[in-house]
């Protein structure tokens, strides 16, 4: 930090102009003609703005590079996701789930909770239990025919798993089901955008 001159504002008129630092000022006048406060902030404005512009552009280019790297990360993740096809799994027997009831199971892995519901129409549907907003577990509201995410008051239609209200915009993950010999089998996982 620079000390203030003994005399403030300085008396430029009594100083040798050649000894003063060469700084360009916005108004184009020489340093001795500048107001006294500029001595306390001796910034070369024109040069400072050019440097800031270059640095700002470099920051933007580096940010874009981070976006590109993330984009390739998504590409690699899509390759992995494309290869992983879950194995079919028997979930429950038809008679174990009465009409209007929902049971919590896991598919495809032991850490992937799903909700299997027997609708009043007689059909079975299953959805991933994690809300598509911020991954809170949704809970069934059979009396309303909906699934509720209590974290942020999100609501999903139980028949289709589509968002009805609240922050979620994407439908719940749908579990593909098959009924063979009275047994409900999960055969795949369907992520959906709309």
């Amino acid at each position: 930090m620079q000390d203030h001159p003994a005399e403030f504002p300085p008396d430029y008129a009594s100083q040798d102009p050649a000894a003063l630092p060469r700084i360009r000022f916005p108004d184009g006048r020489s340093e001795p003609d500048q107001p006294g406060w500029r001595h306390a902030f001796p910034i070369d404005w024109a040069r400072d703005q050019v440097v800031s512009r270059r640095d700002f552009t470099r920051l933007m280019v580096l940010t874009g590079l981070a976006f590109t790297v993330a984009q390739f990360g998504v590409g690699l993740a899509s390759l992995r996701a494309g290869r992983a096809r879950p194995e079919p799994k028997a979930l429950a027997r038809v008679e174990e789930i009465p009409v209007g009831e929902t049971v919590r199971l896991h598919y495809p892995g032991p850490r992937d909770p799903i909700l299997l519901t027997h609708l009043s129409t007689g059909a079975f549907v299953a959805y991933g239990q994690l809300c598509t907003h911020l991954q809170c577990p949704v809970v069934p509201r059979a009396e309303l025919g909906r699934l509720e995410c209590p974290c942020h008051n999100g609501w999903f239609d139980m028949a289709e798993g589509r968002p009805m209200a609240g922050p979620p915009r994407r439908p719940l993950t749908r579990i593909q089901l098959e009924i063979r010999d009275g047994v409900i089998h999960a055969t795949g996982v369907e992520e959906r955008t709309a």
Binding site: F67, T68, Q71, F72, G82, T132, R192
Partner: peptide, 19 residues
């Protein structure tokens, strides 16, 4: 958004566009 929705085909063209 597309990836989380299960649309895996768009990821690589988008990565090349970003590049």
């Amino acid at each position: 958004e597309a990836f989380l929705g299960g649309d895996l085909e768009i990821a690589w063209p988008a990565a090349l566009a970003s590049l």
